[in-house]
Design a protein around this nucleic acid. Structure first.
Lengths: 110, 110
DNA sequence: ACATATACATAATCAAATTAGGTATATGTA
DNA sequence: TACATATACCTAATTTGATTATGTATATGT
Protein backbone atom coordinates (compact mmCIF):
# COMPACT_ATOMS: atom_id res chain seq x y z
CA UNK A 1 0.00 0.00 0.00
CA UNK A 2 1.47 3.32 -0.93
CA UNK A 3 1.01 6.56 0.89
CA UNK A 4 -0.95 8.35 -1.74
CA UNK A 5 -3.88 5.96 -1.96
CA UNK A 6 -4.91 7.25 1.43
CA UNK A 7 -6.10 10.62 0.33
CA UNK A 8 -8.68 9.42 -2.15
CA UNK A 9 -11.69 11.61 -1.64
CA UNK A 10 -9.78 14.16 0.39
CA UNK A 11 -8.20 15.99 -2.51
CA UNK A 12 -11.30 18.03 -3.25
CA UNK A 13 -11.69 19.46 0.28
CA UNK A 14 -7.92 20.02 0.44
CA UNK A 15 -7.99 22.11 -2.71
CA UNK A 16 -11.04 24.03 -1.54
CA UNK A 17 -9.36 24.72 1.77
CA UNK A 18 -6.23 26.09 0.12
CA UNK A 19 -8.28 28.34 -2.11
CA UNK A 20 -10.18 29.61 0.90
CA UNK A 21 -6.95 30.41 2.74
CA UNK A 22 -5.05 31.89 -0.14
CA UNK A 23 -7.74 33.56 -2.19
CA UNK A 24 -6.33 32.96 -5.64
CA UNK A 25 -4.13 30.13 -6.77
CA UNK A 26 -3.03 28.36 -9.93
CA UNK A 27 -2.72 24.63 -10.34
CA UNK A 28 0.99 24.21 -10.14
CA UNK A 29 1.08 26.45 -7.10
CA UNK A 30 -1.41 24.17 -5.35
CA UNK A 31 0.78 21.12 -5.91
CA UNK A 32 3.79 23.00 -4.52
CA UNK A 33 1.98 24.34 -1.49
CA UNK A 34 0.70 20.92 -0.49
CA UNK A 35 4.20 19.55 -0.80
CA UNK A 36 5.59 22.39 1.29
CA UNK A 37 2.91 22.34 3.99
CA UNK A 38 3.28 18.59 4.47
CA UNK A 39 7.07 18.57 4.17
CA UNK A 40 6.88 16.39 1.10
CA UNK A 41 4.56 13.83 2.66
CA UNK A 42 1.58 14.54 0.42
CA UNK A 43 2.25 14.99 -3.26
CA UNK A 44 -0.78 15.56 -5.39
CA UNK A 45 -0.45 14.42 -8.96
CA UNK A 46 -1.32 16.69 -11.84
CA UNK A 47 -3.42 13.95 -13.38
CA UNK A 48 -5.67 14.17 -10.34
CA UNK A 49 -5.53 17.91 -9.78
CA UNK A 50 -6.30 19.37 -13.19
CA UNK A 51 -9.41 17.29 -13.92
CA UNK A 52 -10.63 18.12 -10.40
CA UNK A 53 -10.14 21.86 -10.96
CA UNK A 54 -12.04 21.61 -14.24
CA UNK A 55 -14.88 19.80 -12.52
CA UNK A 56 -15.05 22.43 -9.80
CA UNK A 57 -15.20 25.13 -12.45
CA UNK A 58 -18.02 23.35 -14.28
CA UNK A 59 -19.90 23.08 -11.01
CA UNK A 60 -19.50 26.78 -10.30
CA UNK A 61 -17.38 26.21 -7.21
CA UNK A 62 -14.48 28.16 -8.66
CA UNK A 63 -13.96 30.70 -11.42
CA UNK A 64 -10.84 31.27 -13.42
CA UNK A 65 -8.75 33.92 -15.08
CA UNK A 66 -5.71 33.36 -17.21
CA UNK A 67 -2.71 35.57 -16.68
CA UNK A 68 0.40 35.79 -18.76
CA UNK A 69 3.54 35.84 -16.65
CA UNK A 70 6.90 35.93 -18.38
CA UNK A 71 5.47 34.62 -21.64
CA UNK A 72 3.83 31.69 -19.86
CA UNK A 73 0.20 31.28 -18.98
CA UNK A 74 -1.10 30.74 -15.51
CA UNK A 75 -4.71 29.84 -14.88
CA UNK A 76 -5.81 31.30 -11.59
CA UNK A 77 -8.66 29.77 -9.62
CA UNK A 78 -10.83 31.62 -7.11
CA UNK A 79 -13.75 30.34 -5.05
CA UNK A 80 -17.11 31.75 -6.08
CA UNK A 81 -19.58 32.96 -3.48
CA UNK A 82 -21.38 29.63 -3.69
CA UNK A 83 -18.03 27.87 -3.64
CA UNK A 84 -17.17 29.48 -0.32
CA UNK A 85 -20.34 28.16 1.23
CA UNK A 86 -19.67 24.69 -0.13
CA UNK A 87 -16.14 24.90 1.24
CA UNK A 88 -17.44 25.60 4.73
CA UNK A 89 -19.60 22.47 4.52
CA UNK A 90 -16.74 20.41 3.11
CA UNK A 91 -14.48 21.58 5.94
CA UNK A 92 -16.99 20.51 8.57
CA UNK A 93 -17.24 17.11 6.93
CA UNK A 94 -13.48 16.75 6.65
CA UNK A 95 -12.99 17.66 10.29
CA UNK A 96 -15.66 15.19 11.39
CA UNK A 97 -13.93 12.55 9.29
CA UNK A 98 -10.58 13.35 10.84
CA UNK A 99 -12.07 13.11 14.32
CA UNK A 100 -13.62 9.77 13.44
CA UNK A 101 -10.31 8.49 12.18
CA UNK A 102 -8.74 9.63 15.41
CA UNK A 103 -11.31 7.80 17.51
CA UNK A 104 -10.35 4.60 15.75
CA UNK A 105 -6.61 5.06 15.57
CA UNK A 106 -6.20 6.55 19.04
CA UNK A 107 -9.12 5.01 20.93
CA UNK A 108 -7.72 6.01 24.33
CA UNK A 109 -7.63 9.74 23.77
CA UNK A 110 -11.01 11.42 23.71
CA UNK B 1 -20.14 15.13 -1.68
CA UNK B 2 -21.07 12.58 0.91
CA UNK B 3 -19.16 11.74 4.02
CA UNK B 4 -18.21 8.25 3.09
CA UNK B 5 -16.23 9.06 -0.03
CA UNK B 6 -13.64 10.55 2.27
CA UNK B 7 -12.37 7.32 3.65
CA UNK B 8 -11.40 5.74 0.36
CA UNK B 9 -8.12 4.03 0.98
CA UNK B 10 -8.45 4.31 4.75
CA UNK B 11 -10.71 1.31 5.24
CA UNK B 12 -7.86 -1.18 5.01
CA UNK B 13 -5.71 0.41 7.74
CA UNK B 14 -8.83 0.92 9.85
CA UNK B 15 -9.68 -2.78 9.71
CA UNK B 16 -6.09 -3.77 10.41
CA UNK B 17 -6.01 -1.44 13.38
CA UNK B 18 -9.18 -2.92 14.86
CA UNK B 19 -7.86 -6.43 14.45
CA UNK B 20 -4.64 -5.41 16.16
CA UNK B 21 -6.51 -3.94 19.10
CA UNK B 22 -9.11 -6.66 19.47
CA UNK B 23 -7.26 -9.75 18.44
CA UNK B 24 -10.06 -11.64 16.78
CA UNK B 25 -13.10 -10.19 15.07
CA UNK B 26 -15.76 -11.16 12.58
CA UNK B 27 -16.99 -8.96 9.77
CA UNK B 28 -20.27 -7.81 11.17
CA UNK B 29 -18.58 -7.01 14.45
CA UNK B 30 -16.13 -4.74 12.66
CA UNK B 31 -18.95 -2.74 11.07
CA UNK B 32 -20.61 -2.33 14.46
CA UNK B 33 -17.45 -1.34 16.27
CA UNK B 34 -16.60 1.36 13.73
CA UNK B 35 -20.13 2.73 14.07
CA UNK B 36 -19.85 2.71 17.86
CA UNK B 37 -16.37 4.18 18.10
CA UNK B 38 -17.27 7.04 15.78
CA UNK B 39 -20.74 7.59 17.23
CA UNK B 40 -22.36 6.71 13.95
CA UNK B 41 -20.20 9.06 11.88
CA UNK B 42 -18.38 6.35 9.93
CA UNK B 43 -20.43 3.48 8.65
CA UNK B 44 -18.55 0.94 6.64
CA UNK B 45 -20.60 -0.90 4.08
CA UNK B 46 -20.59 -4.66 3.81
CA UNK B 47 -19.99 -4.39 0.09
CA UNK B 48 -16.67 -2.76 0.88
CA UNK B 49 -15.74 -4.76 3.95
CA UNK B 50 -16.20 -8.37 2.88
CA UNK B 51 -14.22 -8.16 -0.36
CA UNK B 52 -11.48 -6.35 1.57
CA UNK B 53 -11.34 -9.10 4.21
CA UNK B 54 -11.14 -11.71 1.46
CA UNK B 55 -8.29 -9.83 -0.16
CA UNK B 56 -6.41 -9.58 3.14
CA UNK B 57 -6.84 -13.31 3.64
CA UNK B 58 -5.53 -14.06 0.14
CA UNK B 59 -2.53 -11.85 0.87
CA UNK B 60 -1.80 -13.64 4.11
CA UNK B 61 -2.45 -10.60 6.27
CA UNK B 62 -5.21 -12.37 8.17
CA UNK B 63 -6.27 -15.93 8.76
CA UNK B 64 -9.77 -17.16 9.47
CA UNK B 65 -11.73 -19.69 11.43
CA UNK B 66 -15.43 -20.29 11.20
CA UNK B 67 -17.36 -20.75 14.39
CA UNK B 68 -20.93 -21.82 14.79
CA UNK B 69 -22.79 -19.71 17.29
CA UNK B 70 -26.46 -20.41 17.89
CA UNK B 71 -26.82 -22.21 14.58
CA UNK B 72 -25.30 -19.31 12.68
CA UNK B 73 -21.79 -19.09 11.27
CA UNK B 74 -19.32 -16.44 12.17
CA UNK B 75 -16.08 -16.08 10.28
CA UNK B 76 -13.42 -14.83 12.62
CA UNK B 77 -10.41 -12.95 11.33
CA UNK B 78 -7.03 -12.74 13.09
CA UNK B 79 -3.86 -10.98 11.98
CA UNK B 80 -1.04 -13.31 11.01
CA UNK B 81 2.48 -12.68 12.20
CA UNK B 82 3.28 -11.04 8.88
CA UNK B 83 -0.03 -9.18 9.09
CA UNK B 84 0.98 -7.63 12.39
CA UNK B 85 4.15 -6.28 10.88
CA UNK B 86 2.25 -4.88 7.93
CA UNK B 87 -0.23 -3.31 10.33
CA UNK B 88 2.53 -1.46 12.13
CA UNK B 89 3.69 -0.02 8.82
CA UNK B 90 0.14 0.85 7.79
CA UNK B 91 -0.41 2.62 11.10
CA UNK B 92 2.69 4.74 10.65
CA UNK B 93 1.51 5.70 7.19
CA UNK B 94 -2.00 6.47 8.39
CA UNK B 95 -0.70 8.65 11.18
CA UNK B 96 1.59 10.52 8.80
CA UNK B 97 -1.34 11.03 6.51
CA UNK B 98 -3.47 12.36 9.36
CA UNK B 99 -0.72 14.74 10.39
CA UNK B 100 -0.40 15.93 6.81
CA UNK B 101 -4.14 16.53 6.59
CA UNK B 102 -3.90 18.49 9.82
CA UNK B 103 -1.11 20.67 8.50
CA UNK B 104 -3.35 21.65 5.61
CA UNK B 105 -6.64 22.00 7.44
CA UNK B 106 -5.20 23.65 10.56
CA UNK B 107 -2.12 25.41 9.19
CA UNK B 108 -1.73 27.54 12.34
CA UNK B 109 -1.30 24.72 14.83
CA UNK B 110 1.98 22.88 14.62
C1' DA C 1 -47.02 -12.70 11.68
C1' DC C 2 -43.81 -9.29 10.63
C1' DA C 3 -40.02 -6.16 11.26
C1' DT C 4 -35.55 -5.79 12.68
C1' DA C 5 -31.06 -7.51 13.86
C1' DT C 6 -27.45 -10.67 12.97
C1' DA C 7 -24.22 -12.73 9.58
C1' DC C 8 -22.39 -13.88 5.41
C1' DA C 9 -21.67 -12.97 0.27
C1' DT C 10 -21.40 -11.18 -4.71
C1' DA C 11 -22.25 -8.39 -9.08
C1' DA C 12 -22.85 -4.05 -11.49
C1' DT C 13 -21.64 0.42 -11.37
C1' DC C 14 -19.37 4.80 -10.19
C1' DA C 15 -15.84 7.94 -8.55
C1' DA C 16 -11.35 9.26 -7.87
C1' DA C 17 -7.18 8.25 -8.12
C1' DT C 18 -2.50 6.52 -10.80
C1' DT C 19 0.38 6.12 -14.67
C1' DA C 20 1.99 7.67 -18.66
C1' DG C 21 2.04 10.51 -22.11
C1' DG C 22 1.99 15.31 -24.50
C1' DT C 23 3.14 20.62 -25.24
C1' DA C 24 5.88 24.65 -24.21
C1' DT C 25 8.84 28.18 -21.87
C1' DA C 26 12.52 29.52 -18.38
C1' DT C 27 16.58 28.78 -15.86
C1' DG C 28 20.74 26.81 -14.06
C1' DT C 29 24.97 24.35 -15.13
C1' DA C 30 28.70 21.37 -17.11
C1' DT D 1 26.03 25.10 -26.54
C1' DA D 2 23.73 21.32 -24.83
C1' DC D 3 21.15 19.24 -21.33
C1' DA D 4 18.70 18.74 -17.06
C1' DT D 5 15.48 20.65 -14.17
C1' DA D 6 11.74 23.67 -12.96
C1' DT D 7 7.60 25.87 -14.28
C1' DA D 8 2.91 25.40 -16.24
C1' DC D 9 -0.74 23.49 -18.52
C1' DC D 10 -3.34 19.30 -20.31
C1' DT D 11 -5.59 14.45 -21.43
C1' DA D 12 -6.36 9.30 -22.07
C1' DA D 13 -6.17 4.60 -20.42
C1' DT D 14 -6.26 2.07 -16.58
C1' DT D 15 -6.69 0.69 -11.75
C1' DT D 16 -8.52 0.91 -7.23
C1' DG D 17 -11.80 1.18 -3.87
C1' DA D 18 -15.79 2.47 -2.85
C1' DT D 19 -21.46 2.43 -3.41
C1' DT D 20 -25.72 0.34 -4.47
C1' DA D 21 -28.44 -3.42 -4.95
C1' DT D 22 -29.37 -7.92 -4.28
C1' DG D 23 -29.37 -12.59 -2.31
C1' DT D 24 -29.35 -16.24 1.47
C1' DA D 25 -30.41 -17.62 6.14
C1' DT D 26 -31.22 -17.58 11.22
C1' DA D 27 -32.60 -15.11 15.68
C1' DT D 28 -35.21 -12.02 18.30
C1' DG D 29 -38.54 -8.65 19.69
C1' DT D 30 -43.38 -6.91 19.27
Amino acid sequence: MNKSTLYKGCLEPIVMRLLKDNGRMYGYQITQMVKELTKGELQITEGALYPLLHKLEEQGVVETEIENIGNRNRKYYTLTKSGKKQTAVAMDELKMFMQSLNLIVNPKMV
